[in-house]
Each structure stands twice: as C-alpha cells, then as structure tokens.
C-alpha cells in the first residue's frame, strides 16, 4: 500500500533521512521505533508531503506521491496525527472535527463520521462546544485521532500517540488504535514507547540516525537483544 524507496530528506541543512526504505501493507499495523532525533517524524512528514525528499520515491498504491502537495495527499487517503497533537486551540471540538472532514463535501457522510468518532470517544461528545485548547492532554490526543478519522483515511499515520499521557490513558488510546485497525484502516505508527507499539503492531522497523537498521515481525523485535537493550530498557 505504502512504500518508501531510498528516501533522502533534508531538514534545513540536516541530512535527516539517509536512504529510508520501508513498506506498509493494506490492513497492517506497522510501527517505526527509534530514539529522539532518529528521523521518525521526518519520515511521516515526508510521507504527508510537508517535506520534499531530495532523492528517492514514496509510493502509495502504484502512484508516486513525493511531489504531491499535503492537501492532495490527504485527498488520496493518507492522514496524519502529528506529534504534539496540534489541536486548533481556538476552534471548538466540533470545529476541529469539521476541519478533519474539510475535503468531504457529502454533508450526511460527515454527520455519520461525527457519530462514529463520538462512539469511539464519548468524552468528545460532552466537550463538543468547548475550545480545543482547553482540553486535557489525553482528550486532545483523542480529538487529534478523531479529527484524522473524520477524513476516513485508508492509511493513518500516528506520531507518538502515547507521548506525555498517563499509563491508563496510553492503554485506552492503544485499545482504540486496535479498534480503528480492525475496522479496516491501515496504521503506520511512530513511537519511542517501543513496548506498547510492538505489542499492537504486526511488523516493526527500527531507525537510527536517519536509516532503518532493523526490520522484522513485531514479536521477533520484542525478543531481539539489541531492541531489548536499547529500546525496551532491559538488560
């Protein structure tokens, strides 16, 4: 479904991605783990078209999308929940969700989408006319995911969905990620919280200084000695 082939991306003067190749198949949950600054978010921003790769190809289905504008990439069915959630702070929860459905013109489908995300995240229904900036961190994460779902994406990119959340909230968010995947949305997940990510994912990639250094099935990565040492904090 999604394939990166030898992608090089510069972030200013920094050579952030140095030949990244990876693949996500339809229906999978795939995770990308790595330390801070390894290039995980840069990878997602390159897929979303916010950053242009200097070299290499990004394929979605059979089409090359590395030159496509971010809004046109959303139109093709790739949505991102970026790091830090980036809720529109002075829009209401409802308006945030409406913005998620910006490219959908079928009013009834948008209403159905609202119902769907309110079922997934009942707390959002209670907060519907509150400003986004007044929500708690966990609620903002839910809103961010819900906003992305409003576009009914085929591929959902999640950047550190557990960052800064209480353990219980992390459990809850991951349960919902599973649920979204079970409903047919392919998920590509970036995490520092390798433990959680590898438990829900089918396959995983490990990234170091702009390169993929390891790729395997998630259970195998959980057993891998290097991963256990460096990313799971075990001896």
């Amino acid at each position: 479904m999604l394939r990166l082939e030898d992608v090089h991306t510069y972030y200013g003067n920094i050579h952030a991605l140095r030949g990244v190749s990876l693949e996500v198949e339809e229906g999978e949950i795939v995770c990308l783990i790595g330390a801070n600054g390894a290039g995980k978010s840069t990878t997602l921003m390159t897929i979303s078209g916010v950053l242009r790769p200097a070299r290499g190809r990004v394929l979605f289905g059979d089409e090359e999308i590395q030159e496509v504008r971010p809004d046109a990439i959303v139109a093709r069915g790739i949505c991102q929940v970026p790091e830090g959630r980036r809720i529109f702070p002075r829009l209401t929860v409802r308006e945030n969700l409406e913005m998620g459905a910006f490219l959908r013109h079928d009013h009834r489908a948008v209403e159905a989408g609202l119902e769907r995300v309110f079922t997934l995240f009942p707390v959002l229904r209670e907060r519907v006319s509150q400003l986004g900036g007044t929500l708690s961190g966990g609620e903002q994460q839910m809103l961010a995911i819900a906003r992305a779902l409003m576009a009914s994406p085929r591929l959902l990119l999640l950047d550190e969905p557990s960052l800064g959340l209480a353990p219980l909230m992390v459990q809850q968010i991951y349960a919902i990620i599973r649920e979204i995947n079970a409903a047919g949305t392919t998920i590509f997940l970036v995490e520092q919280n390798a433990h959680m990510a590898l438990r829900v994912a089918r396959r995983g990639y490990v990234m170091e200084t702009g390169q993929v250094v390891l790729a395997d099935r998630a259970p195998a990565l959980l057993e891998n000695e290097m991963v256990r040492k460096v990313y799971l904090g075990e001896v």
Binding site: V50, D71, F88, M99, A148
Partner: peptide, 22 residues
C-alpha cells in the same frame, strides 16, 4: 467552511495542510 479553514490556518498552518486545507 472556508471561514473556519481560515481560522484553522491562522492557528496552525502546517496542521491545516495536514487536514487537507490548501
């Protein structure tokens, strides 16, 4: 819809692009 997109863009331009606003 366009007015709300304008406010969204003013609040976070990159995020606006990520929800599909040109």
């Amino acid at each position: 819809r366009l007015g709300k997109a304008m406010r969204a863009t003013a609040q976070d331009r990159r995020m606006a692009a990520l929800v599909g606003i040109n």
